[in-house]
């Protein structure tokens, strides 16, 4: 099983990937097992409401949720460092919705 997160607005498979990482209102977290979507979960991003340090707060959430991969826009330098530290991989994607991104992930296997 692999757990992937996507920055989103309202969240869900049909939602578009949000153009900014730390300031996304929600993250859509998806479990993939045997090339199938197993589980879809939408969590609120504490970074969205933060005055500062949004990116790091977002990564903290992802780390707490046990996310292994995040697909979306490039995070800022602090968030990038935090992602590395937490061992979460980042795959850059933009302009897709979540479902399309999952399909791309499954197809290309990155």
């Amino acid at each position: 099983m692999v757990r992937i997160a996507f920055p989103t607005e309202k969240g869900g498979l049909e939602d578009n990937i949000y153009p900014r990482f730390g300031r996304a209102p929600t993250f859509t977290i998806i479990d993939i097992e045997k090339k199938q979507i197993k589980n879809v979960k939408i969590v609120e991003n504490p970074g969205y409401r933060a005055s500062g340090g949004a990116g790091v707060k977002a990564v903290q959430l992802l780390a707490n949720e046990g996310v292994e991969i995040v697909m979306g826009p490039t995070p800022g330098p602090n968030a990038y460092f935090a992602l590395n530290n937490a061992g979460i991989k980042h795959y850059p994607v933009q302009g897709l919705n979540v479902k399309e991104a999952v399909e791309a992930f499954l197809r290309e296997d990155y």
Partner: peptide, 9 residues
């Protein structure tokens, strides 16, 4: 009051 990056975003 404090200025914020949040408002700009």
């Amino acid at each position: 009051r404090p200025n914020s990056g949040k408002l700009v975003t």
